[in-house]
């Protein structure tokens, strides 16, 4: 039973996470060697119940890791729309970027996660942002041949103008 708070969060062990936090609430913001918090681990592995518990206990969703990874980008990359929505309701920056020039929208497109793309666009994701390698969300969808994503992006652009 010596799993770290990060492993417990990732493995969805919500009761054990609650017990650890009751003994040491500072674990909420404990960053591992790469700067990842328990909230980031839970978001990356789609553990919505743990995400809810950590936020309820006061975890800061705006913390970014060493390469500027965030709970939102990890949830977007993993395709966890329910976690994306709860994080956005907490006021995280929908356009947070990391050192790869990645944004939640670009990771959602890369993962072909249609519902995540829709949820991010609905909360103001910037469709013009490009990755370091110069790909916008649309260029990425076209290059990857993700037709549904392309359609969602086109419809969004039409709504904008």
């Amino acid at each position: 039973d010596s799993l770290s708070i990060h492993q417990l969060a990732a493995q969805g062990e919500v009761l054990q996470v609650a017990v650890r936090l009751s003994k040491d609430v500072s674990l909420l913001s404990k960053q591992d060697e790469r700067g990842f918090t328990p909230l980031m681990w839970a978001s990356a592995f789609g553990e919505k119940t743990v995400v809810d518990l950590l936020l309820e206990k006061g975890a800061d969703p705006k913390i970014v890791a060493r390469d500027r990874e965030s709970a939102l980008t990890l949830a977007s990359s993993g395709g966890y729309v329910d976690i994306i929505e709860v994080l956005l309701r907490r006021g995280v920056d929908v356009n947070v970027y990391d050192w790869n020039g990645g944004t939640p929208l670009l990771y959602a497109v890369r993962g072909n996660h249609v519902k995540c793309v829709e949820a991010l666009l609905a909360k103001g994701a910037d469709i013009t942002t490009e990755s370091d390698s110069g790909y916008s969300a649309m260029a990425l969808a076209v290059a990857l041949g993700y037709k549904k994503i392309q359609k969602v992006l086109e419809d969004h652009i039409l709504r904008l103008y």
Partner: peptide, 21 residues
Amino acid sequence: SHLSLYTSPSLPNITLGLPAT
């Protein structure tokens, strides 16, 4: 009990395998 450990989360390279723009 056997402890199974999850690997640390990581983000993919967004444009891996795509031509440079």
